[in-house]
Design a protein around this nucleic acid. Structure first.
Lengths: 353, 353
DNA sequence: ACACAGTCTGCACGTATGTGCAAGTAGCTT
DNA sequence: AAGCTACTTGCACATACGTGCAGACTGTGT
């Protein structure tokens, strides 16, 4: 009932041991019940151990004595508690520690900036990895029971998905914002993997969106968008509470997934250049001033129009690397972002205006 | 500007090193500024270290390299970050883990119960200490900027105050709910110490309440209550956002402070017995059914009437030890509590109804 | 009943973190 | 400028924690 479910065809990622699996769901078979009981006790003990450890500052040795077990088991219980999201750790930045320059940026764009410290020496890959890890942990604060989160999968989201902190939620769902298929693959495996990880971490239903990232013919999109199965997903997208996305940029050394995997051809790139495009969110392109109207490719894009996106109440953007700065400025201009998770160096670039 | 301030006469507790002190506040002397700068940098580094440690899972060794310092300094920075409340750790209990019996109690009394695990073998003193520690950490979630918290000091509150987790708040205040003076001492030192610790932990202003715990003559109270200086405090009490209190009980092996320190004489005890009193909150007594009308001593008590208390939006009660069970039942009957922090054994007793 | 696979446990060891101490540093006083 | 105090730093050691491994245990299939 609470296990994550992946709808629509698509491979299911192999899961880590211990996770409840929704498949084979003949319910209430006796072993299942016993298994459930055992898992329950484990959670019980983990919760108790975590409480004693984090709230009462006991050492694991002392906790072991109280639980009549070994210290190493306690260590494992507490690890489990953390992994299962029973323990939540936040680092809070007091308001007065925010530089006035950053404050000005925040006020101007109505955005909350979460700065991720990364040494200047780090390469782009490490940088992304670390921003993604921080983002994954911050995200838990934005998502809760009864909510819908839309995800614009891509290389940044893939990194985020690999570091998600589990959190128990009920009646929540994850919806894919843009299609994944291209001329070479159906893209479903890649996108599905990302989506599944989100679903698994939050115990949320996953709504996939089985369409190409870009249509060849806008008319096809128009037609398909009238299908009820597709409209159902579009409708969920329209009502999402949180949108999570990275930024694509045509000029990065580490180009977004969309720019490097056969989604676009030479004509397309020429067209983007002609329209002065600086970036995209979920396959929808925009210019430096934030405008996205009259960019030809957008009529073939599978992602939500930017003005629709801007109506979502929380819009979380994860950005790493200075090469995405133009894209970031454009996204801010378009008011696409309410919460920005970004590495230190990129923020500094942003402040020089 | 943000330093805690203790108003009204009363000794100031010696503070730990490093704490900003509000005394001698000739502002903007150059050393102060320099000192401030240094403290600022420390917070900056601590924040960064904490971020790298808790959000990015780096080892202290790695963080030391990034910060160009030694591993031991990083260890100290992270300790500092925790002590200063820059890091917040919560252990969350998923809803489905709450037993149905407890759920019933919660629903019946409109109360959220926070169960503190304590081994049955623990003695009353340890028990109190551990409940207090948990309470202190949970409390941070209830109190924030622009809020007023009322505190009914006593032995439980004293224990809580010793374990408070600092949290940065602005424009918040702590108000004392009942007087402290008795026939033997002014009680100010003891109460002031508790209050100060709260003020220090949250950076809140402290409003003391310099009256006796119990008046000899109700008329004196009536008169004093008309004084503007007193009415100012009473007014603050009336508008508090959070009330925090323990429970007194006449029949405990570890009696509440109020019962053991010369606040009451033999006649008083006889009177309490005659009225079938089972407990008190902030010097105001009540019976098993929660009623407090016509308990003679209440007209001489310095704490807020219970019906006034019950109008506060969040009312946090900390209880440890089965001996307080009758007092707890009474307090629940009187709807005095919205959040109950209590040890496991006592909860179990509560469930047997 | 037996063998097998999967899981859990405690031990022993290795790694990571906490802390007393001596030396160093900065600001203040004389 | 010297001397003082209060504080910070890194080292070396002490403690606490994480984890591979072998044995115990549980449930399953033959």
């Amino acid at each position: 009932m609470n296990a994550p479910v992946v709808e629509t065809s698509g491979e299911r990622t192999a899961e880590h041991s211990g996770g409840a699996d929704a498949s084979n769901s003949t319910e209430k078979r006796p072993e299942r019940a016993a298994e459930h009981q055992v898992a329950n006790e484990r959670v019980r003990d983990a919760l108790r151990a975590a409480h004693l450890y984090y709230m009462q500052d006991l050492t694991m040795e002392a906790i072991a004595a109280e639980l009549h077990t070994s210290r190493s088991s306690v260590s494992r219980l507490i690890s489990y508690a953390r992994e299962a999201g029973l323990v939540e750790i936040q680092v809070k930045t007091p308001a007065e520690r925010i530089s006035t320059a950053l404050q000005r940026v925040q006020d101007k764009h109505h955005v909350t900036v979460h700065v991720v410290p990364v040494p200047d020496s780090a390469n782009e890959v490490d940088r992304l990895e670390r921003v993604a890890m921080s983002a994954a942990r911050i995200l838990g604060q934005f998502f809760d029971s009864n909510m819908t989160m839309g995800i614009a999968w891509g290389s940044t989201m893939s990194a985020v998905s690999r570091h998600l902190q589990p959190k128990v939620t009920h009646n929540s769902q994850i919806v894919q914002l843009n299609g994944a298929a291209n001329t070479r693959t159906t893209g479903i495996v890649y996108a599905s993997e990302i989506m599944s990880r989100f679903g698994l971490a939050y115990g949320a239903y996953v709504q996939q969106f089985p369409v190409p990232a870009f249509f060849d013919d806008p008319a096809t999109k128009q037609v398909l968008w009238r299908e009820r199965s597709i409209r159902r997903v579009l409708d969920i997208q329209k009502h999402m509470d949180v949108a999570l996305f990275g930024l694509g940029t045509p000029n990065s050394e580490v180009p977004g997934h969309v720019y490097s995997s056969g989604y676009l051809d030479e004509n397309d790139f020429a067209s983007l250049a002609a329209s002065n495009v600086v970036g995209d969110v979920a396959t929808v392109f925009y210019r430096a001033d934030g405008s996205s109207a009259d960019v030809p490719i957008n009529s073939r894009a599978s992602g939500p129009p930017l003005d629709q996106l801007a109506r979502v109440s929380r819009r979380v953007c994860v950005v790493s690397g200075k090469s995405r700065m133009p894209a970031l400025r454009g996204a801010l201009a378009a008011h696409l972002i309410t919460d920005l998770i970004v590495d230190e160096a990129t923020v500094h670039g942003l402040l020089d205006e």
